[in-house]
Design a binder for these strands. Sequence first.
DNA 1: CCACAAATATTTAAGGTTAAAATATTGTGG
DNA 2: CCACAATATTTTAACCTTAAATATTTGTGG
Lengths: 168, 168
Amino acid sequence: MSKPSKTAPQRSDHETRVTDDHHESLRLWLRMLSCTNLVEAHIRSQLRLRFQTTLPRFDLMAQLERHPEGLKMGELSRRMMVTGGNVTGITDQLVAEGLVVREDNPKDRRAYIVKLTKEGRRVFREWAVEHEDWVIRLFEGLGEKEKKQLYDLLARLKQFVGSLGTGN
Amino acid sequence: MSKPSKTAPQRSDHETRVTDDHHESLRLWLRMLSCTNLVEAHIRSQLRLRFQTTLPRFDLMAQLERHPEGLKMGELSRRMMVTGGNVTGITDQLVAEGLVVREDNPKDRRAYIVKLTKEGRRVFREWAVEHEDWVIRLFEGLGEKEKKQLYDLLARLKQFVGSLGTGN
DNA sequence: CCACAAATATTTAAGGTTAAAATATTGTGG
DNA sequence: CCACAATATTTTAACCTTAAATATTTGTGG
């Protein structure tokens, strides 16, 4: 399907098809990237305006909110899909702001357990409600059915890309 | 739950554990974000390994390649969706590397015209071929029809989000 | 012509990001 | 017990990114 090939099919062959596919995938990727950038820019801007915070800070707290038992630095780094050194810096800030704590782990003194503080939980719950509102508004251009379609297509993409290994 | 099983692969990204029915848009957004991050990580890694360059550098050159007449700094910044100060730094590097030039514009001495050099065009053409190859492999998990569906859904999303204004 | 707003680009300060090196702890085989 | 690999985190250097402040030039109304 969709290999109509407006060009002279005098030799409709492998090369032609590969070339078409290249352009399709590339255009799809660029569109996906700009969509994500647009949404992300909105959210960053709102986090800054409304809560004087940043997306990585928010993201780290969101991970901890889903894991009340606490997470190690390395777990945070994997879940946030950033490198470990990065988590160190962001955690330092949040500790300084009193929103998270590093708890010593007597079982393994290499690894902390990072948790939200009481204040961190309180603050994050407020933020999360408003954050979800922004997201809902940003995706209002799609209907229920479209959202589900998009969700499912992205599931397939994610699974495939994830299966290719971390990318050396 | 209190014991982090070592065997569980644990997808480990933005998307884990948001299973409430009423949070469709949020889940969709988190999935979209992690898809984009996965693909982007692959590409950054390859650009670094294969060409010792970075995504912003590559992106700037890609914009110039599509506009042989040259672009002003501000145009680059809009197309790349980054702030102007950013483009200054990346352009400085590429000029130092001999891949782009700032041409003085006698019509308006506020604005340069930035273009690829001959060497820049040569190098970018090589890079672009391989870059397209990476992208097509990353999206091979989707069929033709699925790619088209995804492309169209993202078009709707992009148009809607774009219509909301810049947000601040 | 002149004052001044608008447009363009750069600089600055603060923070996010990475890969690689360094540090510290744990576990294991000999 | 000891050497040594594996694990967990931090540090470092380089780069990307932003928002705000600073020139510089252009255009316009008076």
